[in-house]
Amino acid sequence: MARDVNINNSTSIFGKVVAVQGSVVDIWFDSDLPSINTLIHTGPDNTIAIEVLSQLDDHRIRGIALTPTQGLARGMKAETDGGQLSVPVGKEIMGRMFDVFGNTIDHGEALPEMPRNSIHQLPPPLAKRSTKSEIFETGIKAIDVMVPLQHGGNAGLFGGAGVGKTVLLTEMIHNMVGYHQSLFCP
């Protein structure tokens, strides 16, 4: 539709919604088609976030809604600044819980202003990854001694109904949180 400059001196691109099928949304742009993984806001008060999944032709994109699409209809204005979905990075996020947009959801204190990275960045090169084999200590003696697990590896847990699979996993999670203060530790 049009280009406009917003308060932050970044250029916004406007389009309009042409189709809504559940959480799949098609949006028309007259020019400057957003690239794949771009975040688009639309709906009442720009509350619906859509991530571009594919470019259908020279004017239409197809995206997936990351928020409920209630109230979204054909003809509504859509806006993007070309940015991607990003999350905060740094030591301050250890042990915290976030939604898909990088907002804290654990009712803890607010995070300080910190750098954010796109969720679609490339993984670190192999040269920077750890290649050593480490034992993953679960805190459950029977597992650690008889069936040690490898850090970063996979394991299966088989059993019938009522034999304690969920209890075992819950105990492992409890031990990891108590030991590392977080399940997601470096």
Rank of each mutant, 00 (worst) to 15 (best):
M1R: 07
A2E: 11
R3M: 10
V5D: 02
N6M: 06
N8R: 06
N8P: 00
N9I: 09
F14C: 05
F14R: 07
F14S: 13
V17Q: 03
G22W: 10
S23Y: 04
V24N: 08
V25G: 06
D26P: 03
W28A: 10
D30F: 01
D30C: 02
S31C: 04
S31K: 15
P34V: 10
S35G: 14
T38M: 03
T38H: 03
I40H: 02
I40T: 01
T42W: 00
G43K: 03
G43H: 05
P44G: 03
N46K: 12
N46M: 13
A49P: 04
I50N: 03
V52T: 13
L53F: 03
L53G: 15
S54C: 06
L56C: 02
L56R: 09
D58T: 13
R60C: 10
R60G: 02
R62T: 07
G63K: 13
G63P: 13
A65W: 01
A65Q: 04
A65H: 02
L66D: 02
T67G: 05
T67C: 04
T69V: 15
T69P: 07
Q70K: 05
L72Q: 01
G75Q: 06
M76W: 01
M76Y: 08
E79R: 15
D81S: 09
G83S: 14
G83T: 11
L85N: 10
L85W: 01
S86R: 08
V89R: 05
G90F: 12
G95I: 12
M97A: 14
F98L: 08
G102A: 09
G102H: 05
N103S: 12
N103G: 04
T104F: 04
T104H: 01
I105L: 03
D106T: 08
E109G: 14
E109I: 06
L111V: 12
M114E: 07
P115F: 05
N117M: 14
I119G: 09
I119Y: 09
I119P: 11
Q121E: 10
P123T: 08
P123G: 08
P123N: 09
P124W: 01
L126W: 02
R129C: 05
S130N: 15
S130F: 01
S130R: 11
T131V: 05
T131C: 01
E134P: 05
I135G: 01
F136C: 14
E137P: 05
T138E: 11
I140Y: 05
I143Y: 03
D144Q: 06
P148F: 03
Q150Y: 02
Q150K: 14
H151Q: 15
A155G: 06
A155H: 00
F158D: 11
G160N: 07
V163H: 07
K165M: 11
T170V: 01
T170P: 00
H174N: 13
N175G: 04
M176V: 09
M176L: 13
G178R: 10
